[in-house]
């Protein structure tokens, strides 16, 4: 049976998170049909149709779906469930918002944030902030699954030639109204997909001091992240937060600056390939998991790091 993948997008572009969800869906064993629900989202549907591993794109294009409000999207997904063995979405704030509501409408117990497909009905997912890994088997007729994007390769954006069809109509439930967004978009790579991430914690002492990290990030082509402490202190916006309840990242290189390493933060970055840290407290837990730890005052070490990278001619890859 086929698998339905709920696409994440902003009505203009397909989000990379969807590509990871498509790969996970293919591992579950069926052709992936992608549902693009939005308003004026034709370009997204075309992009989804070119993704390798996608068999069919179903487009629900309706003003009521423009902001992808869960109250309007969940009934659409629930109505399409019969005929699918699985319904899959990325475990982003969009997927987390919509999928459990659809699952409840279908009387299905969702499996959240999986990191491995063991078999079509069995998945591995982290619990307790990643301090334990549970292997769970779903007994529901349709499996509803959200996928940790960093655990699955992105499907290729070219090479597919899926058909594009209209999905069943949608309706405005009249329960909620999208009023606006304040997105902090910048020119740097996305935190979740960046090859290098440099994050600051409470030790940064102010938002202004994050400029030091940004300068290093510019040299390395890195994204800038933060610990909860730095976000709570107002140094940087909420979307910088890496951790159990923020974003989970797994870059090639993660540089933690002035971050002590609470388990809640480690949960969001310990799957990085290489971890480096700079902290003046040599007892900080971050040193236990860092491949390369430097005990130093970050206000000296970070400018030095910038100068050394320049001297060595290091460039973004």
């Amino acid at each position: 049976m086929a698998i339905l993948v709920y696409a994440e997008h902003d009505n203009g572009e397909l989000s990379p998170a969807t590509l990871n969800a498509v790969t996970a869906a293919n591992l579950m064993g069926g052709d992936a049909d992608v549902l693009v629900a939005g308003s004026g989202c034709g370009a997204v549907a075309e992009a989804a149709a070119r993704v390798r591993g996608v068999a069919k794109v179903l487009v629900a294009d309706d003003p009521a779906l423009g902001a992808q409000l869960a109250e309007n999207v969940a009934p659409l997904i629930a109505g399409m469930a019969s005929g699918y063995s699985h319904i899959v979405a990325a475990a982003t704030t969009t997927g987390k918002n919509v999928m459990p509501r659809a699952a409840a409408l279908l009387d299905i117990q969702q499996v959240s944030d999986i990191v491995e497909v063991v078999s079509p009905d069995t998945f591995v997912r982290p619990i307790y902030a990643g301090n334990a890994m549970a292997t769970v088997q779903s007994t529901d007729a349709v499996k509803i699954v959200t996928v940790r994007t960093t655990a699955f390769e992105a499907a290729e954006t070219e090479g597919g030639s899926a058909t594009v069809e209209a999905a069943p109509g949608a309706a405005d439930a009249g329960l909620s109204t999208f009023e606006g967004a304040a997105l902090s978009g910048n020119e740097r790579p996305e935190l979740i997909t960046a090859r290098v991430v440099i994050s600051g914690g409470r030790g940064m002492q102010s938002g202004e001091n994050f400029a030091m990290l940004e300068e290093v990030a510019d040299i390395l082509g890195a994204a800038v992240g933060a610990s909860r402490a730095a976000v709570d202190s107002g140094y940087v916006p909420n979307d910088y937060q890496v951790g159990q309840t923020g974003k989970v990242v797994a870059p090639e290189l993660y540089i933690a600056v002035g971050i002590s390493g609470a388990i809640q933060h480690l949960a969001g970055m310990k799957d990085s390939k290489v971890i480096a840290c700079i902290n003046k407290d040599e007892e900080a837990p971050i040193f236990h998991i860092a491949d390369f730890g430097l005990v130093a005052d970050l206000f000296q070490a970070v400018p030095e790091l910038k100068a050394e990278l320049r001297n060595q001619g290091v460039q973004a890859r």
Binding site: A67, L69, T92, T93, T94, G174, L175, S176, T177, F178, E179, G180, A181, A182, L183, S184, G185, I192, P237, N238, D239, K247
Partner: peptide
């Protein structure tokens, strides 16, 4: 006001 991956969103709910 909702904390979403890209920043913040404002939604009015009945």
């Amino acid at each position: 006001v909702r904390e979403v991956d890209g920043g913040l969103e404002t939604v009015a709910l009945r």
